[in-house]
Nucleic acid binder design. Sequence first.
DNA 1: TAGATTGTTAATCGATTAACAATC
DNA 2: TAGATTGTTAATCGATTAACAATC
Lengths: 208, 208
Amino acid sequence: MIATDDKTRRLIRYRSAVRRMKAMGLSRVYSENIADAAGVSALQVRKDFSEEGVRGVRRGGYQVDSVLERLGEVLGRDTAHEFVLVGMGSLGTALAKYQAFAQHGIKIVAAFDTDAKKLSEKGRVPVLHAREITQYCKKHRIKYAIMAVPEAEAIGVYEQLAAGGVKGILNFAPVRLRGGKRLVVNNVNLVYEIEHLVYFVDHTRRKV
Amino acid sequence: MIATDDKTRRLIRYRSAVRRMKAMGLSRVYSENIADAAGVSALQVRKDFSEEGVRGVRRGGYQVDSVLERLGEVLGRDTAHEFVLVGMGSLGTALAKYQAFAQHGIKIVAAFDTDAKKLSEKGRVPVLHAREITQYCKKHRIKYAIMAVPEAEAIGVYEQLAAGGVKGILNFAPVRLRGGKRLVVNNVNLVYEIEHLVYFVDHTRRKV
DNA sequence: TAGATTGTTAATCGATTAACAATC
DNA sequence: TAGATTGTTAATCGATTAACAATC
């Protein structure tokens, strides 16, 4: 079964929470703990777990290792993924050396830009000219890409990545890119996140 | 009325789409156009508009200016917001000079870090020591903050910001921070966005 | 008038919550 | 046994979609 968008996001948060609990030395956790860390209700956690085949024992909670085992099957276990990154502006440059990515097996194997001054074969991540995107992706069978380019270049880069056989794009460019049958896009727009925050500050007294 | 989380996100996307259409010189738009740009159905756009008091004319679509006018009332018009930024690691540094923020009136007036090497009074954005967060926010009546700090420091920074009277935080630290009555938090976790992408690449043939 | 488009009410669908059953 | 916790089925709620009405 394919989980919905929202449910997947929850499962990802559950896994992250349980991993942190494991790192803290716990071997058993309760739906209440996980819910707390993930910002949902305990009932929601149990429902999701039950539907996804994560089994606990009544009264005894969930075994940390068995939760991680099963969530690994559902969400995918091989965390080591190779990415290319397009756009070495300030955001792209930051993402290329973002520690949290490295810590989660997200490896950026090459970056691309059009600015000759930024190109460099050596360095931890080689920076190649954007015209080589398609060729590079084909040659190295790249499955995932991160786009951090200006709006005007987004479509062109998207097409080059698609032509190169890329299957998934995390897009930071301020244009919504549509995924297709062969290609999934996850659009992240940081300006929207700010606007969203501002809206709720101005309009809500949220529950504690 | 306070729109739900998802609806607000849609309204923000609609506004962004209509602004771009205006920049392209259009004065009238149809629900179909907006839907297309925002990645939802035209019916959804009309429903949302109707509920929020955005009025069109049957057969004639929506007047660009009147849409922006009304969405401005709903979402908040004063786009000029002053932020402080905590954490001048690679991500924080990138956000401090992120063009798209500047273009949308999001101004970062001060940054904070604990690393003495990064401190600097001059420069476009002064970088102060993190121990001054609370005092600075109080003194300048700062309402919004962006956190780009490591997990271990997140709670401490959060408390300092709260003590300083900050009302909204965009949090990039890999820990979910809970908002409260006085303080709204928007958590953005880039690792989750990658994991989400990977899940859908592996599990879905999405509709075109 | 006919056609295109918005607007609204009703129907459907799915997700969350409530109630309670099971059991360690 | 009593109590705590998971698990499941039923009820509720809300959001999306469908149907159709209004009108430019």
